[in-house]
Nucleic acid binder design. Structure first.
Length: 192
DNA sequence: AGTGAGATGGCCT
DNA sequence: GGCCATCTCACTA
C-alpha cells in the first residue's frame, strides 16, 4: 500500500529508519521502475549545521523543505548531480531524509560492482532521471512521478546499521551525529 | 587499497 | 567569490 502523508509527520529519525525497506516508485522515462530503499540520512531542522535549512535559511532552493512532510526535495550538488530527499514533519520544522541507496526491483542476483548504478545519491538520481523538475512532488499520491509504498517487506532492528553522515565534515560536531541508516550487508549501500 | 584532482553550476554572503 | 548532503578516473604503493 502507498504510504499516507501522515507517515512523514513523525520525528525524522524514526521516519528515516521506517523508510528502510519501503519501495520507491519512479515513473519518469515512460516505464515504471520500483526500488527498495536501503540507505538514508536524516537532516534536522534549523539547528543542524549540516542541513540546508541551518539558521532557518528559507531560500528558493530550500523552499520545498518548508512544506509539510511527504513532499520531495531535490537539489543540485557539485553542478552535476541531483539528490533526492523526503521532507518530514510539518511546516514549522524543515527536516528531510536523503535517499542514498536503493535496490532495483527486480534485479539479477550476481551483481558486479561495476554494474551498481543506484548505490549513491547522485548515481541513483542520474539512473532514474530524477532532477530538480521533481522537486516538491507529493509522494503520497499515486499519480506523482515519484511515490513510496509499503510491500510488507520486513526489516528488523538488528539489520539496521547506524553511522555518521557522509560528506558533512564542514558541520563540526554535527558531522559525528549518528544520522545515517542503512541495511546491513546490502550491496546497494553507497560505502562501507 | 588508498589518495587526489577535476568536472561543473547554482546557491548564498 | 567560495563553497558544496558527489562520482570517476588516474595516479601511487
Amino acid at each position: 500500500m502507498i504510504l499516507p502523508q501522515e507517515f512523514y509527520f513523525e520525528d525524522t529519525e524514526s521516519v528515516a529508519k521506517a523508510l528502510l525497506g519501503k519501495v520507491l516508485h519512479i515513473n519518469i522515462t515512460g516505464k515504471e521502475s520500483r526500488a527498495r530503499i536501503v540507505e538514508v540520512e536524516a537532516y534536522l531542522d534549523v539547528d543542524d549545521p549540516a542541513a540546508h535549512t541551518f539558521g532557518d535559511r528559507k531560500t528558493p532552493r530550500t523552499k520545498s523543505m518548508y512544506l509539510d512532510g511527504g513532499h520531495s526535495y531535490v537539489y543540485l550538488i557539485y553542478g552535476m548531480y541531483n539528490c533526492l530527499n523526503v521532507v518530514t514533519r510539518t511546516i514549522d520544522h524543515p527536516e528531510a531524509i536523503l535517499i542514498r541507496g536503493v535496490e532495483p526491483l527486480p534485479h539479477h542476483t550476481d551483481i558486479k560492482k561495476k554494474d551498481l548504478k543506484t548505490n549513491g545519491p547522485g548515481k541513483l538520481c542520474k539512473h532514474y532521471g530524477i532532477t530538480r523538475e521533481h522537486d516538491g512532488l507529493r509522494l503520497w499520491k499515486k499519480k506523482s512521478a515519484l511515490y513510496i509504498s509499503d510491500d510488507s517487506f520486513e526489516v528488523s532492528k538488528k539489520q539496521i546499521e547506524i553511522k555518521p553522515r557522509i560528506g558533512v565534515d564542514y558541520a563540526g560536531e554535527a558531522a559525528k551525529w549518528p544520522l545515517r541508516f542503512y541495511l546491513k550487508d546490502n550491496p546497494f549501500v553507497s560505502r562501507k
